[in-house]
Design a protein around this nucleic acid. Structure first.
Length: 652
RNA sequence: GCUUCGAUAGCUCAGGUGGUAGAGCACUUCACUCGUAAUGAAGGGGUCGAGGGUUCGAGUCCCUUUCGAAGCUCCA
């Protein structure tokens, strides 16, 4: 047989050989490093016998994600073996490799750090014992019997749910056998460095209706240093966490008696949000053809009954006076702006010539999230988004949808975060149709249209089932927080269904009433969430135009406070956010504080500067920027703010 | 909502086995009037998240509750 390797070279073998044997034949080193193989694009075990011509790629921990996964998957089996030894009553559920590590779920009492340390010790023993991992397959009945005898009910359930023709495979290592599709390393000793990170609860099969199991998270590496680096990184990212840094920098806070998910934006945080809001509103209205609306924050339940929210999402709304006490109406705080803007549209009759109509609103929304869901500024019960609805003719839909994506891209670019997002086509779940309105045909058409647009725009995207809004599919633009968790930052939604519910129409050339299509979209998403994102992205060192304090004037001593105030006044006159540090402190102390506050610029003024009408400029981008006339500095910083420049730190 | 962990001064934290609360920073006052990452001194500040219980006595032990963190589930 002829084996074609990754580099295009070929090797010929007389008889069938395992992946491991071929890897070892290529080089002893590769044989030792190999964690799995890839035959004609399919990931396989090292034990897999290759018996015909194929393309073969030897996977290692370092050269591929699948290679890492095999390594960590074996680590998770070592974990399971150790747990079963220490806690014989524990039942095994599942234990896959994940990005940056692995986990294993057990039905057992919860664990604290001490328990994890004990388990780690036992794992080290298992590794040292150097068990071979042996692969074997069983027919369905025997597989079920084996797991029943082992008293592993979760494994039995997993086998029973496998398709009839599935190969049911196991890996045995010493006294531990686990149902597993593999691939796996050859022996436990191959795992060189690992750490159990944490434990928590996790529902069996991801459903809250099922029992909560105990999940143990861990990670493993081939080099001790890599593990140490990873642990240091995990420790370090806490310093970027917006929920910590944002509070430290006095951008926001929360108060017990005000409630969960209700952050208070402090003056600095509020200023940043104001800066973004003014930018977005002007951008939309002046350059992207939007009109502005301002609609109520609450409405009678009747409105939500028409929109479908009452049926689909009442649980997520803050409803007031639901039982109609004292003859008062039932009201609800709005969880979205859609129907309000529809009534703006319906206020007058529209010709086909009027469309598209693009309505923008800086919209405050209320969502009654479950108590465990709240997080800093990213998951809150009241937030404000750059919301908008476009009412368009069907023939305009594609162009307008593209326009919304272009605006979103422009916003991302301006904030300097374009590289950090992923695009998703969020589709409905055909298995769960009662969650949605519309027919399968309508959904196919809407999803197909979005797919075509994204493909045409050459945007990389994934397709996510069950992520659509109840009225239509959408493009979600997501970003990861420092912990790797994804949040939707921007959304553009296709809706050809709702207009009917609200009896929206326009008059076409023939004088007939026609249903418009609707695009629900945000240009830059939710201001609170975006602020959180920027805090983490920039570690609090924001682009100058977004900074709540752009310059601080530092008089050398109290004698120069008057001149400092003059300088500040000149900057303020030009729209620069400036303060004066007029405390009776040494200049070194004031500079230290200015740096600690992550200010973009601080200017020192003393006798020399006052005499000549200068300022001594320093910045976090370039350090000392020299002494220059006030007017020159004003010009410089105003230009940077006006152009929304994202100035880079210069190498020293 | 579920599992686990946590809450001590504005912030970061220390307070074996129960004996009546402490540090650094911050804040206030005074002195210093200063040239590029912390001037010195003095002072104020806590019903130890809240409520209940055990006890002669609770920051410490138990229960309830509120808020916070990680994960799960959810996220129009």
């Amino acid at each position: 047989m002829i084996i074609t390797l990754k580099d295009g070279s070929t090797r010929a073998y007389e008889s069938p050989m395992s992946v491991l044997e071929i890897a070892t034949d290529i080089s002893g080193g590769l044989g030792r490093m190999a964690t799995a193989g890839e035959v004609d694009g399919k990931v396989v075990d090292l034990r897999t016998i290759v018996d015909k011509d194929c393309e073969l790629n030897i996977l290692t921990f370092d050269n591929s994600d699948a290679g890492k996964a095999a390594y960590r998957h074996t680590t998770s089996h070592i974990l399971a073996q150790a747990v079963k030894r220490l806690y014989p009553e524990a039942k095994c559920a599942i234990g896959p490799a994940i990005e940056d590590g692995f986990y294993y779920d057990f039905d057992m009492p919860s664990l604290n750090r001490e328990d994890l340390d004990k388990i780690e010790k036992e794992m080290k023993k298992v590794i040292k014992e150097n068990h071979k991992l042996e692969y074997f397959e069983l027919p369905r009945e025997e597989a079920i019997k084996l797991m029943q005898e082992a008293d592993e009910p979760y494994k039995v359930e997993l086998i029973e749910d496998l398709p009839e023709d599935a190969i049911i495979s196991f890996y045995k290592q010493g006294d531990f056998t686990d149902l597993c599709a593999g691939p796996h390393l050859m022996s436990t000793k191959a795992v060189k460095a690992f750490k159990l990170i944490s434990s928590s609860g996790a529902y069996w099969r991801g459903s809250e209706k099922n029992k909560m199991l105990t999940r143990i998270y861990g990670t493993s590496y081939t080099k001790k240093q890599d593990l140490a680096d990873r642990l240091a990184y995990l420790e370090n990212i806490k310093n970027r966490d917006h929920n910590k840094l944002g509070r430290e920098m006095e951008l926001f806070t929360t108060v017990d008696v005000i409630g969960q998910g209700l952050p208070l934006l402090l003056p600095k945080g509020a200023k940043m949000v104001q800066t973004m809001q003014r930018w977005i509103e002007d951008l939309e209205d002046n350059e992207w053809g939007y009109v502005r609306t301002k609609t109520p924050l609450m409405a009678k339940s009747d409105l939500y009954k028409i929109s479908g929210h009452w049926d689909h999402y009442k649980e997520g709304m803050f409803v007031m006076n639901d039982n109609e006490e004292a003859g008062k109406e039932t009201m609800a705080l709005r969880p979205m702006t859609c129907p309000f803007q529809y009534y703006v549209y319906k206020n007058s009759q529209h010709s086909y010539r009027d469309l598209p109509i693009r309505m923008g609103e800086t919209s405050t929304l209320f969502r009654n999230e479950d108590s465990g869901e709240m997080h800093g500024l990213t998951r809150v019960r009241q937030f404000t988004i750059s919301e908008g609805h476009l009412i368009v003719r069907p023939d305009q839909m594609v162009e307008e949808f593209k326009g919304c994506l272009a605006l979103a891209k422009h916003c991302l670019q301006t904030l300097g975060v374009e590289e950090d997002v992923t695009y998703h086509l969020s589709k409905w779940d055909p298995e769960n149709t009662e969650k949605y309105i519309g027919t399968p045909e309508e959904w196919d058409e809407m999803e197909g249209a979005i797919r075509d647009i994204l493909t045409e725009l050459d945007i990389d995207f994934t397709e996510d089932v069950g992520e659509a809004a109840f009225y239509g599919p959408k493009v979600d633009i997501n970003a990861k927080n420092v912990y790797g968790k994804e949040d939707t930052m921007i959304t553009v939604q296709w809706d050809s269904l709702i207009a009917k519910q609200f009896d929206m129409y326009y008059i076409d050339q023939n004088g007939d009433k026609v249903r418009p299509y609707i695009i629900h979209r945000t240009s830059m998403g939710c201001y609170e969430r975006t602020l959180a994102w920027l805090i983490e992205k920039y570690e609090g060192k924001f682009p100058t135009w977004l900074c709540p304090e752009q310059v601080r004037v530092l008089p050398i001593s109290e004698k120069y406070i008057d001149y400092a105030e003059t300088v500040a006044k000149e900057l303020k006159k030009n729209g620069v956010l400036v303060t004066v540090d007029n405390r009776s402190e040494k200049i070194g102390y004031k500079i230290r504080e200015a740096r600690k506050a992550r200010l973009p610029y601080w200017v020192v003024v003393g006798a020399k500067e006052e005499e000549e009408g200068n300022v001594a400029v320093s910045s976090r981008f370039a350090g000392n920027e020299g002494v220059k006339p006030v007017a020159e500095f004003v010009d410089q910083i105003c230009k940077e703010i006006r152009t929304k420049e994202i100035r880079k730190v210069e190498e020293q």
